[in-house]
Amino acid sequence: MTGAVRLEPVDERNLEPLLSVAAAEAEPEDVMPPVDAPAGWSLARREAFREFHRASFGGLDGPTATAMYAIVSGGEVVGMVRMARRDEPGTVETGMWLGRSARGRGLGAAALRELLHVAAAAGMNTVVADTTPDNAGAISVLRKCGAELREQGGKTYARMCLDSALPTH
């Protein structure tokens, strides 16, 4: 079914499938912070990917104040969505990536809608994100989920208020 997803907290059980999708269907700079390692999906970069995700196993109350979720569609891990506490109370920042084969099928919007529900259940009232103005896929997902968008300084900023009704489709 197009657009049907489930979010699973990233843990040791789904970390390797997540890495497999990232290595096969995404560029390292699109799925993790920059690291000093050989280009491409070198062994060092794969280990850095694992450590980056393991650092957030503690969730919003852990040392990184970040919860990461594997996006699962059709029983397969297809990407990741995260939320991280911001300085403003009740606010988290989100970001996501999907493997190339999962793009354009409504999975990004479905995953963000699920994350908005998770954030609301965690007591958050605002979810923010930023992207580049040329990232049409991300902007489309944010619009579909009711984000207020503004451009400033070469970036597009999104704000989703969870005090109103959450998007359902």
Rank of each mutant, 00 (worst) to 15 (best):
V128Q: 01
F57I: 05
S164W: 01
V141E: 09
A136V: 15
A110V: 02
R105W: 06
E29P: 15
L162I: 05
E51R: 14
R103V: 09
V92P: 04
D36T: 10
A111H: 08
E12L: 09
V78R: 14
R113T: 12
E29V: 12
N135Q: 05
T66S: 10
C145W: 00
D130N: 15
D36C: 04
G90V: 00
D30G: 06
S140P: 07
A129E: 02
R82D: 14
F49R: 10
M68C: 15
T91S: 09
G153C: 04
L19Y: 10
A67Y: 11
G154F: 09
A111T: 07
L166H: 12
L18H: 10
H169V: 02
A39F: 07
A84S: 15
A26Y: 06
E27W: 07
A48R: 10
R86V: 04
R50C: 08
R150F: 05
V72F: 10
L18F: 05
G59H: 12
T64H: 11
C161V: 13
P34C: 00
V10F: 05
M96C: 01
A136I: 12
N135P: 11
V21L: 02
G59V: 08
E12F: 06
N14W: 08
A48W: 06
T94S: 05
A119E: 05
E93Y: 00
P17D: 00
N14I: 13
V35Q: 13
R46Y: 01
V10W: 03
P17E: 00
D30R: 07
